[in-house]
Design a protein around this nucleic acid. Structure first.
Length: 256
DNA sequence: ATGGTAGATACTCTA
């Protein structure tokens, strides 16, 4: 079973690239973030034409997440249980082939100390509570998405430059560590010890050309599923396309 | 210390 996650930064702009990538890679599950469209505008028919059904949780202009699969998608859950109607749409969960897939677009946080930073830390607390209340650590589960956090310095191209900055600050890393402590394993790190492997490069200042990136897109699984993970990698090829997303897909394969 | 780019929407906000 192959599971992938990709922040596409607008599904309407990136549709042809996503269709091409699916055709070339045939993931069983593809988690998308920042679709930036409402449910009615999501191109579900285009994915159905190539054999993929979708579960969508969109909103106008910002955020929005979706799960695609060519296997049956069941028990779809959208947002946190106590969300208000106007809450950011950043989480969708579903069960596919016995795996509970939790797809998240964790807030960016803007700048350390800002209101958006506080919102990010609060959202991470809510995510930990979501696992405590709604998920079973003894079952196969994958948390996938754009975490907007580089967990360690080896996930950062220039740790000194980024020290204490957004995506790398201590409080963000601690809040993410609390989620890991619920019972999740970074399956990319299970297969790759070395640093310098990134999933996001800023559009500005030639970030990709200079390899000035961060590893902020992740696939973390419960122990029972991590034990079956045969490989995980970041596919940098779509980042070389014309008009790319600023993120590359992250993939993991499981022997189930 | 600052600016650089991209996307959606509406002349600005978010990343």
């Amino acid at each position: 079973m192959k599971i992938a996650t990709w922040n596409v930064n607008s599904i309407s702009v990136r549709l042809d690239q996503v269709l091409e990538w699916i055709s070339g890679n045939r993931p069983d599950v593809l988690c998308l973030q920042e679709i930036k469209c409402v449910d009615e505008k999501f191109p579900a028919n285009r994915f159905r034409e190539i054999g993929y059904e979708s579960a969508v949780f969109g909103q106008p202009t910002y955020n929005g997440v979706a799960i695609l699969s060519h296997m049956p998608i069941s028990d779809i859950e959208r947002g946190f249980p106590d969300d208000q109607e106007d809450a950011h749409r950043r989480l969708i969960a579903a069960t596919i082939n016995t795996v509970r897939v939790v797809n998240v677009y964790i807030p960016n946080g803007s700048e350390v100390g800002s209101d958006k930073y506080q919102f990010k830390l609060g959202w991470l607390d809510q995510l930990r509570k979501f696992f405590d209340q709604k998920c079973d650590v003894n079952q196969p589960l994958a948390l996938c998405g754009d975490f907007n956090i580089a967990p360690e310095d080896r996930d950062v191209h220039d740790p000194q430059l980024w020290a204490g900055k957004i995506l790398c600050s201590e409080a963000e890393r601690e809040a993410l560590e609390k989620i890991r402590e619920w019972g999740l394993i970074d399956v990319f790190r299970k297969h790759h010890e070395t640093g310098g492997q990134f999933s996001w490069w800023d559009y500005r200042a030639g970030g990709f050309r200079r390899n000035h990136g961060l590893r902020i897109d992740h696939l973390w699984t419960t122990k029972i599923l991590a034990g079956k993970c045969s490989n995980s990698w970041i596919d940098k090829i779509p980042r070389t396309f014309e008009k790319p997303s600023d993120h590359a897909p992250v993939v993991a394969e499981f022997e189930i």
